[in-house]
Nucleic acid binder design. Sequence first.
DNA 1: GTCGACTGAGAATGGTCATTCTCACCGCGG
DNA 2: CCGCGGTGAGAATGACCATTCTCAGTCGAC
Lengths: 190, 190
Amino acid sequence: MSTAESMRGQLLDAVEQVFYARGIQAANMSELRAAAGLPLRRIYQLFPSKDELIVAFLRRRHDRMMLAIEERVDAAGSPEERVLAIFTHLDGWFHEPSFRGCPWTNAYSELGPTNAAVAAEVDHHELELRALVTRIVLDAGYSPEIADVIYLLVAGSVTTAGVQHSLDAAQEARVGVRMLLATGGCGLPR
Amino acid sequence: MSTAESMRGQLLDAVEQVFYARGIQAANMSELRAAAGLPLRRIYQLFPSKDELIVAFLRRRHDRMMLAIEERVDAAGSPEERVLAIFTHLDGWFHEPSFRGCPWTNAYSELGPTNAAVAAEVDHHELELRALVTRIVLDAGYSPEIADVIYLLVAGSVTTAGVQHSLDAAQEARVGVRMLLATGGCGLPR
DNA sequence: GTCGACTGAGAATGGTCATTCTCACCGCGG
DNA sequence: CCGCGGTGAGAATGACCATTCTCAGTCGAC
């Protein structure tokens, strides 16, 4: 049975795959139709415009990412491991064959200056991700300065893995994180 | 007098400004013509297609960035300061009113999957920048692992400053760099 | 069975854009 | 004075694309 709900899911699955693999602007509505196996007419019934699809795509992916990180952190043991769990998640993501960088910075690069709704959605993602990382690091007992630096390592490893296809960016970041967390006990220079 | 050389410079100045401010795809040839103050005909005489303009834009900017970093590093004194000089340069860049993220990752997000020449140019930039950062860190006497982490901080701060408009990303990265460099003398956990 | 509301498939519309073309015009060698 | 290689300005071309529309079916209610 094809309920509106199931068609919506089917559509968003296809949209995610096509937008992410080909780029948002490069993907046209015909491609989405083909990938979703739905008539154009129905796509426009579910979402009134391509812009709405873009926002829905970003939000859906955001929700999934936040959940995945939180689950992995919850499953980790020691404070240090809880922080490193973030990068364990990233490492898995980078190694997915479909990995092609950060959907949000990609969208922002493509559309940020011309599409306010997309820019707002990306903003929302970045703020929430930063808040999550900060919370994890602080809860583990480390300083806010360290949290800021670790967030930069998250952003840096995602970008680097995306553009340079260097799949071990998360491993490199891990090394940095362990160094940083270790300094907690050895007297920083200011 | 308007030599081909001077017109080329005039054109590339305008192209840089427009591509960077509005996004490559969003900027059309009419805009470029208006900004450059040159007839369309002449633009196509100087560069046979928009794609060539994009590549020239990326390369010109790349050369300038590499030079600027090297100059700043050369002017710095102690080994630690030489590494930090990278982030001094970034800090200045982020505070330019026109700053709108990394031109290369922006271009890669927009065109990477569909334009091989642009993807190659971005690759070239990333490789050279990484090599430069690595060389600076190694020359200053630190380990390759630290160089990798510092490169991630470079990438992370540029992305973060671009998307979040958080102008102090370079300062946060600086804090991290000083922590990392300090661990050189206090016994890392592996 | 038949009416009406809805459907899928894909064609039409209207707009945008990179690229090329037209044309009236200029400077200059003969 | 003549003709020609090149010029600027902007109009034509051809392609692409989001969005809307057409039309011939189809299903359910009565």
